[in-house]
Simulated scan of single mutants.
Amino acid sequence: MHVDFAPLRIPFRRRLQTLVVLQWVFSFLVLAQCCAALFVTLLFTRLWFVSVLYATWWFWDRRTPSRGGRSSRYVRSLRLWTYFRDYFPIHLVKTADLDPKKNYIFGFHPHGVLVTGAFSNFCTEMTGFQTKFPGLKTHMLMLPLWFRIPFFRDYIMSAGLVSSDKESAKYLLKQEGGGNVAVIAIGGAPEALDARPGAFTLQVKNRKGFCKLALQFGVALVPVFSFGENEVFDQVNNPKGSFLRRLQERLQALMGISLPLFHARGVFQYSFGLIPYRKSIHTIVGKPIEVERSENPTLVEINELHQKYIEELSNLFEEHKTKYKVPEDRHLIFT
């Protein structure tokens, strides 16, 4: 196998970018396990009281991930995120004004392997969200599982991540005075199994819970499409019906998380590894779909809003695709 090594002479800034992206991938893949191991290990050392004190705090604070979380502007504004942004680079594109006195649901597409664009745009301040949409605060919904892991839960909450259970979303959307944005990767973990360069398959058809929430609280839906999201990682071939895909879907059903076998480049070479490719990501925030409140929405109302959302998402994709080198004959595939 031929290995394409990185040049020895690389600007220091690019090396920093790679280092920051490396720690981000590490955080996604193994930081949770390391935090859990640390918590248990401390119990059998002279520092056992640290885990006991943390467990006490954890019990007292257990509802915070479902009550708006505990976002830290300091963490979200750390300079290291500028290196993360510039590695790809990642851009946030605004297409319409949003009223800061209202609450919103952002439907993010596609999920990609590690929701790279969503993290950079909505969990850090480095792509200018606060400047483009003053008065709005983003909260990205993440599987409840991750908020049960000691230490790790506090780290992800500091970036604005909150639990994806229904009570969490309802808490955000019912707040008086507006200003809250619930960011939902609509396709969820299963969609990650279709994430590969050139793929435009979205799992949306049977996902209508976000439409019901929008109707119950009368909040606008905002379609968001991230061009380039699927380009930053390759994935082992896993067509539907294959043994690998059936195994992945079985594990996803058991654990709630998907396990895409992704790969890209390494730190010192470009041929293999888990570091994403340097591919541009442009996240387009579409126009809001205004929703009239219906505390007990009927199935007809939910289906009508869902169909309208799919149409607006398709329009957003078609309007911008040629700017980001998507062939004219490529269209979104909804499953």
Rank of each mutant, 00 (worst) to 15 (best):
G218E: 03
Q216M: 10
F227V: 04
L202W: 12
G209R: 10
Q216Y: 01
G218F: 00
N206C: 05
C211H: 11
L213R: 03
A220R: 10
K208Q: 10
T201M: 06
N230S: 02
S226Y: 01
A220E: 14
G218C: 07
C211D: 14
Q203S: 11
N206K: 12
L202Y: 15
L213Y: 05
C211A: 15
V204T: 14
F210E: 03
F200I: 04
V222K: 11
G218K: 05
G209L: 11
C211V: 09
V224M: 11
N206H: 14
S226H: 00
N230D: 05
V219P: 02
C211S: 15
Q216K: 09
G228W: 02
G209S: 11
F225M: 06
K205Q: 12
L221A: 14
L202I: 13
T201H: 13
Q216A: 00
F200M: 09
N206A: 09
G228S: 02
G209E: 11
G228A: 00
G209W: 10
L221F: 09
V204P: 02
K208F: 01
K208I: 01
F227Y: 10
G198F: 02
A220H: 10
V222P: 08
A199T: 11
G209N: 09
R207M: 03
V222M: 14
P223L: 08
G228E: 01
F217Q: 07
K208C: 01
T201C: 11
V224R: 07
K205T: 14
G218Y: 01
S226Q: 06
P223G: 11
K212R: 15
F210Q: 06
Q203I: 13
K205L: 14
L221T: 15
L213K: 06
V204W: 02
A199F: 00
N230A: 04
V204K: 03
A214D: 09
